[in-house]
Structure formats: structure tokens, C-alpha cells
Design a protein around this nucleic acid. Structure first.
Lengths: 210, 210
DNA sequence: GAGAAGTTTGACTACGTAGTCAATAGTTGA
DNA sequence: TCAACTATTGACTACGTAGTCAAACTTCTC
């Protein structure tokens, strides 16, 4: 075993690599979200990054792994943001739910104008992604279930069924970028606000209640 | 031009052909809805019909045409049913809207257990289908916009924005088969009813109002 | 600046699937 | 029974794309 140090790369190089991985992941996520998994070839991803396909295989074992990384990296960031917001919120459940809905829609529409539209819609992804999508959906549901149940117990909300309410909210928020994405400026802000207020109706809160 | 009659086929043969076309269209729609356009090959469609691919080309010019036919045939039947129901309904707008929502969800969940889940979600279909999907969506929206606006004018409903309300309802109904499809018997009935009632909240109607 | 490590390239294979078509089988009606 | 028409087959081509890999290039490190 002559002199084989098998040294870990220096932190600097590791950071560089991480950055590159993030670039690739982000670009891939945008493309997948724009066109769907099947309609995106690795040549497409490579072209948008100004490299060739072989380069992607230096970082990822295959298309599936790249897709998983894209879903998890972006999804984790999103869910963390919502979890922090929910934990830090100081006020009524009405206010907390409204803040969560609003932030969720904002992230979907603003931060990921192209990416993640399809994020929580399993049918649009290959079966190999089922596990990571399900995990993210569970996390998403837990955030909203928590505040809805709390509000119901406190008598602030009135939901026919928490499950169904959750599903309706989720479905609407999933579609939000398609509706609001083409709008800009005040029109977009207004659409997001209206959507938030409309979803609050699902727990029996009209705008007056805040 | 010796004896070239170019005769139309007999009605009997024409009926037979139409029936075959319907079988193919229905099978294709089921498969497209199960797996998505890209993930379904014409060999898959042919296999489920117990024929070979070449046979499909006797009836359809290509995969795209088959897909268009599938979307339009099934979508037209669905929308016709809703239009009839809306026109025939005799009663308040609250009752009419509830009947429309309920029927829409029932059709989605019961009649098309596999097919058409994705029906009104353009992003899941190739660009060549955009026209026919948009037409169907317009028709769908017109049905529901009609009753919502009517209810708002009559003071029965209170919607923040008809557009946003429509979009939320549409998003939720599109997902309904995914939620209710795995249920059976009373559980399914209950889920469909709960979803209907929950969506009525979007126009400010709680269950008590009926 | 030299050697090592990290990164990218582009030509390559393998494979699946849309679409073609001449040959064949099945059906219909006289 | 036979001829014309309808329907189906299966072998075929063309093409796109996932994945491979040795060689070339770039960037670090001493």
C-alpha cells in the first residue's frame, strides 16, 4: 500500500465543488419544473450550463440521482423556511396560518418562478422519486396540520375535515405559480393576497377576522 | 377512371369502426392518465388492446392525434354532463353549485378512476395539446363562473375574487381522484361529500346554509 | 515550474420508441 | 364461392437520449 494517502480534498476545493453541484442542481430543477422530467434530457441541462453531458456524470451517478438532489435540496430549503416562520410566529393561529400560506405562495411564485411548480405532485415525476416527494409532502402537511389543528382547538377555526382542508390548500398553492407567475408588480401582489385570503375561507376565516 | 366508385362504407362497418376507435381512445386515455404522455408508448397502448402498434396507425395518424382524440372525446362528454346538469337544475345557486361540484368530483373519481386525472393540467401534456386543453378549461370555467357570478349577484355567495375562487376549486377537483381514488364504499362517499362541502366554503357557504 | 489532483470533453455504445409498409388475415356482400 | 374491402401483423428504419470512458485540459500545491 505505497503512500496511498487517500487524502480528503481541501476545504477550498470542497466549497468549489459544492457550489458547482448547487449550480447544476438549480439549473436541473428549473428545467424539470419547466418541462417535466421526461421532456428534459441531460444534454439540455448541460447546454444551459455551458458544459457537456459527460461533465454532469462527474457529479451525479445519473439522471435520477440528479433529480433526487434537485428535489431534496430545493424542497428542504423551502420547508425549513416555513418551519422557522411557524415556530417564530408570535400571535393568533389565524395570523400564523395566513403568514404561512402567504409565505408558501410567495416562495413558490417569487423564488422559484420556474422551479418546483410541480414539486409536490408525485404523478409528474418518475416512480424512483416517490420516496423523496412523499417525505417532503409529509413535512409540508405537518407544518399546516399543526396550525390548523391548533386553531380548531382554540376555536379560531372551523374546518370540516383537516385532511380535506389541507389537500385543498396544497392543491391551490401548487397551482399558484401558474396563475400568478405571469403577473408582475402590483397585480401579482394582489393575486397572491387574494389567493391567501381565499384559502383562509377554508378554515372559516373571512378577511375581517384577521 | 374505370368503375371507381369511391363508395362510402356501409353504416354497419362505420359503426364497427367507430366502436373500435372508442376502445382505442379510452384505453389510451387511461394509460396517459396513469403514467403521463411521455411514459406511455404506443406499444403499451397496443398491448393493452391485444393488438400490435401498426394497427393503431390504421386509425390514427400518430401518437399526438391519438392523444388529442382521447382528450377531446372524454373531455367533451364530461363537460356536456355538467352543462346539462347546470341548465336543468331548478333551485338556488347554492344548491346548483353544490350539485356541480359534487358531480364534477364524482365523474373524476368514479367514472374515470384512472383517466383524466391530469385532464386540465396543461403542463403534463405536450405543447401540441395546448389548444384542446385550453378549450376544455375555458368550457369548464364558464360553467362554474356562471353559477358563482349568479350567486354573488343574488347575495347567496361572497367571493373575494371569482377568478381565484374558480382556480382553487379547479385545483382541488383536479387532485380529487388522487385523494379519493384509493377509498371505496362509504369512506369514498364521505370523502367526496367533505370535499364538496369544503369547497362550498370558498363562496362563503357553510353546511348549514344548503 | 513540475507533478498531482480535479474537471471537462467528445466520441462512443446500447436501447427504447415513433412511425412505415408490404404482406397477410378476416369480413362482407353479390 | 369469389372478389373487394377492411383490418392486422411484424419486420423494418430513423432518431433521440442515457450512460461510458480514455484522453485532454485546468487548477492547485509544493
Amino acid at each position: 500500500m505505497p503512500g496511498q494517502v487517500s487524502s480528503a480534498p481541501s476545504p477550498r476545493i470542497e466549497r468549489k465543488r459544492d457550489k458547482r453541484v448547487q449550480e447544476i442542481v438549480r439549473t436541473a430543477a428549473d428545467l424539470f419544473a419547466e418541462r417535466g422530467y421526461d421532456a428534459v434530457s441531460l444534454d439540455d441541462v448541460a447546454e444551459r450550463l455551458d458544459v457537456t453531458k459527460g461533465s454532469l456524470y462527474y457529479y451525479f451517478a445519473g439522471k435520477d440521482e440528479l433529480c433526487t438532489a434537485a428535489l431534496e435540496t430545493l424542497g428542504n430549503g423551502w420547508m425549513e423556511r416555513l418551519e422557522e416562520l411557524s415556530a417564530a410566529y408570535d400571535g393568533s393561529d389565524v395570523g400564523r396560518l395566513r403568514a404561512l400560506l402567504h409565505e408558501h405562495i410567495m416562495i413558490a411564485v417569487r423564488d422559484y418562478p420556474a422551479a418546483l411548480r410541480l414539486f409536490l405532485v408525485p404523478r409528474e415525476w418518475p416512480a424512483s422519486q416517490a420516496r423523496s416527494i412523499k417525505a417532503m409532502r409529509t413535512r409540508h402537511d405537518a407544518i399546516f396540520r399543526d396550525v390548523i389543528d391548533s386553531g380548531v382547538r382554540a376555536g379560531e377555526f372551523d374546518a370540516i375535515s383537516t385532511d380535506v382542508t389541507l389537500q385543498c390548500m396544497h392543491a391551490a398553492m401548487t397551482q399558484a405559480p401558474t396563475w400568478c407567475g405571469r403577473l408582475t408588480g402590483r397585480a401579482r401582489t394582489r393575486a397572491i393576497d387574494e389567493l391567501t385570503d381565499t384559502l383562509m375561507l377554508l378554515v372559516g376565516c373571512s378577511r375581517a377576522d384577521d
